[in-house]
Amino acid sequence: MAAAKNKDVLLTVNNLKKYFPITKGLFRRTAGYVKAVDGVSFQVRRGETLGLVGESGCGKTTTGLSLLHLIQPTSGRIQLQVKGKMLDVNSKTIGGLRREMQIIFQDPFSSLDPRMRIRDIVAEPLRAHGLKNRQQRYERVEALLNSVGLGAAHMNRFPHEFSGGQRQRIGIARALSLHPSLVVCDEPVSALDVSVQAQVLNLLDDLQEEFGLTYLFVAHDLSVVQHISDRVAVMYLGRIVEMAEVELLFSEPKHPYTEALLSAIPEPDPDIKGEQIILKGDVPSPADPPQGCHFHPRCPYATELCRQESPKLRPAGEGGHLAACHYAQKLNLNGVFPGETA
């Protein structure tokens, strides 16, 4: 990350943690913690898309929600660049920073209030931020709906009159209503049909250019991430295990977990027999993560060192390639070649 010049950095996250208490018994005694996010650090540069991938339950959504303080993070420092200054994002300042950071939700069916008209849904952040004039609000809404491919004709309708893809467009229009600089996209296409996924992804691409947006793109679908991201961070059990430019990560993974994920991408050509790495066992419980490297019980290359000592995220190659593996430099892992996946 040393390569990133400071003025380019829009968001810095330092050692972010979110522990959910597990309560037991009549008096809600805290019996332990689920370490959903366990010390995550990364930077996002202005104008780029950082993909955040991992299996379900690895803490990627929690990371996204914690950034916006929609979930109160347990600890860690989040800083956002606003007009050239790095400002701390915490529970006191978040109110003023909401217009800079917005979110697109995963489920287009539950993220729109079923009893509200589209114009009021999209205008709600404007209203909350003091745009009192109803006429002006609706003019803004119309412009926003136009830019996401909907129109004035849709303004008076209710959410149930729309398809999943259209609903997601409405969610996008709402997120853009305040002209944010950072948009957290929390699996914005995973609830959509494949045919609609591409449309929404292309829309996000176009909007990024039009409004100069920066995306933190949370997803579990590697082909989607490859399509939209400039850089990718891979999460496993609440930690980032590898982070690199998208081509590098896909062609030369440095962490065995990334290698396994890549090998699991389905191959569209039935004649090509790819070598699939099937990981042993399940993801361990984040309430009781393994000693040492979190991945060692499932890693085909694990040694005694991996069982004892937890590896740090360290430079593992050119172009700011980072990996949290003791053997990142020594292992020769298989990637996929750019363009090989759909």
Binding site: R98, R99, S177
Partner: peptide, 8 residues
Amino acid sequence: MAARAGGV
């Protein structure tokens, strides 16, 4: 959550 994100 969306409303909270919008600052309501």
